[in-house]
Design a protein around this nucleic acid. Structure first.
Length: 276
DNA sequence: CTCCAGGGAGCCT
DNA sequence: AGGCTCCATGGA
């Protein structure tokens, strides 16, 4: 985080408001003109620009910025694949420019462990306080880095509870410890979906839903869906034939219907339903 | 006061 | 494997 300030512009279709506020990332802060966050231990701020976005950063390179924001995802092709009915058409229409990010693995995992049995706004508060307490910032930036696994592994459960994690505090601590000690195989990007899913579930506080969030919002598995209360409601109300006996069966049915971009279908439906 | 929130772990059958 | 209960805590 010591490099010179770098600035740049990217011509692309993206709506940074929905991209940051749709519940796929929690370590972000509002600025006068846009959004501040961190990527891989460097700070960055984005704002809208006529033909796309502009940014300034302490050192994230452009390729990583494009990957982070999902700018390599073919939006028009994705829209064509996931608009299968009036509901998905409406969701795409209302959320135009929402992109799925590739968050840092550790930040994403801890964030979704914190999100369980809570709300997006409360989780955002927890994660912001966690970053403000254990991460780093720099003059001129509104954001903080996400604390590293070593730091959180060495933080006590009581201290973690003070940022509002509640009963999730021991999970955050234990998972940080497991990652710090390389107790899980970190080659998940090279694995099949089921293999990677089961590997992630070995982490403390990570079950089916959180594992799928990490696969989708960090590891680039765009055909993965996270079955939460909102998507379950959407399925029961609009796609009852997709309902299976188990989490896996239902998720597989949904994934098959919207393949190969079921994760985009899920994220657009989630954000659209929550905006009503 | 009760209920619910981007669920998961532990224990039981 | 599948079902039940408890887990903090803020907001409605």
């Amino acid at each position: 985080m010591e490099g010179p300030i770098q600035e740049g512009r990217l011509r692309t279709e993206i709506d940074i408001e929905s991209t940051f506020e749709c519940g796929q990332i929690y370590h972000w802060w509002p600025t006068n003109e846009g959004y501040a966050t961190s990527i891989d231990n460097e700070l960055i701020e984005f704002q809208e620009w006529g033909e796309g976005i502009k940014y300034r950063t302490t050192g994230v390179n452009e390729a990583r910025i494009k990957e982070f924001l999902g700018l390599n995802d073919p939006l028009e092709e994705i829209y064509a694949e996931i608009t299968k009915d009036d509901l998905t058409r409406k969701a795409v229409q209302e959320c135009q420019g929402l992109r799925i990010i590739r968050d840092d693995f550790f930040a994403c995992t801890i964030s979704f462990i914190a999100s369980t049995q809570s709300t997006v706004s409360r989780t955002t508060g927890m994660i912001r306080r966690l970053c403000e307490e254990y991460g780093e910032t720099k003059e001129g930036y509104a954001s903080y880095t996400f604390p590293d696994h070593r730091t959180l592994a060495q933080t006590s459960e009581e201290e973690l509870r003070e940022v509002g994690l509640g009963y999730r505090a021991p999970y955050v601590r234990r998972t940080s410890e497991m990652i710090e000690n390389k107790e899980i195989n970190d080659e998940t990007r090279e694995m099949s979906y089921y293999e990677a899913h089961d590997e992630l579930k070995r982490l403390a506080g990570v079950g089916d839903k959180v594992a799928d969030c990490v696969l989708l919002f960090s590891l680039g598995f765009l055909n993965v869906v996270a079955l939460d209360t909102w998507l379950n409601r959407v399925i029961d109300t609009h796609y009852p034939d997709l309902r299976g006996e188990t989490y896996r069966e239902t998720a597989d049915n949904f994934r098959e219907k919207f393949s190969p971009y079921a994760g985009y279908a899920q994220t657009y439906l989630y954000h659209y339903m929550r905006s009503l």
